[in-house]
């Protein structure tokens, strides 16, 4: 719990990222915080937000207290407009129907590349992580919001393994690799909201959460961060936002 015990770091992540979603958008959401944040946005300010899940659900409303264990179970389909094959829902990304992809990751680097496959050398890993799922497809094919806890071991100069391509090696290298659309747009952490420099594609701090210093962000990042000239301060989560989150996740599966 931070902020005098008012909310957990995960709750802060969910609230801050939900505010980045606009009514009328189509968002492709991964499991965990992304699913919860998209659901929160639907309830708070974006009732017309269309959520896609990689299991093949188009436009559902998750039932409070019935969060699915992944984005592939029947709980994902409540009040959906359509269920379709997982290949076809992913193809909606490639066709261009999705405004925002929204996911987490174990590691991120200064160019927004994400790792959810290996800690250490891929040929002899310290930890074999679960892998990409649809993450690589989402990151390859649409604008991306990433929600992650801000820790030095997660914000690394170079990821051990590029599971999901961000701006790859910076500059125009993503486009040159063949990924001519999309790319990381925002990284939401429990300390700050970050974006990317237009030219170099390096990560830069755009806003700090209430009570967080620039120094704190630097201390928890293993690479040199850029800072916007006019850093804003975000508004803390409201009681309403926290109440809705806890109504959806009473067992604290995702917001622990």
């Amino acid at each position: 719990m931070t902020e005098n015990g008012r909310h957990s770091a995960s709750e802060l992540l969910a609230v801050m990222s939900s505010r980045l979603l606009d009514d009328g958008q189509t968002v492709f959401a991964g499991v965990g915080i992304p699913l919860l944040a998209a659901t929160l946005a639907q309830r708070m300010h974006a009732p017309g937000l269309t959520i896609l899940f990689e299991g093949g659900t188009l436009g559902p409303f998750i039932t409070p207290g019935e969060l699915p264990p992944s984005t592939n179970e029947q709980r994902c389909t409540r009040r959906a407009n359509m269920v379709l094959s997982s290949t076809d829902v992913l193809l909606l990304l490639q066709r261009g129907y999705v405004d925002i992809g929204f996911m987490g990751g174990a590691q991120i680097d200064q160019y927004g590349n994400l790792n959810s496959s290996f800690i250490g050398d891929a040929d002899d890993p310290t930890i074999r992580l679960p892998g990409t799922g649809g993450g690589n497809d989402i990151a390859s094919l649409t604008r991306l919001i990433v929600a992650m806890i801000h820790e030095k071991r997660r914000f690394v100069e170079t990821v051990d393994f590029v599971t999901s391509t961000g701006f790859w090696r910076g500059g125009s290298s993503r486009v040159e690799a063949g990924l001519i659309t999309g790319g990381p747009a925002k990284v939401v952490t429990d300390l700050a909201i970050l974006g990317f420099d237009q030219e170099t594609k390096r990560m830069k701090v755009e806003a700090l959460h209430t009570g967080v210093s620039a120094e704190q962000v630097r201390e928890n990042t293993a690479f040199d961060l850029l800072f916007d000239t006019d850093i804003e301060t975000t508004k803390p989560p409201t009681d309403d936002e926290l109440a809705v989150l806890r109504e959806f996740d009473p067992d604290r599966l995702y917001i622990a």
Partner: peptide, 13 residues
């Protein structure tokens, strides 16, 4: 043909 996996180490492996 697909427009995914390019640039990544998932594709690279």
């Amino acid at each position: 043909p697909v427009r995914t996996m390019m640039g990544s180490d998932v594709g690279g492996r």
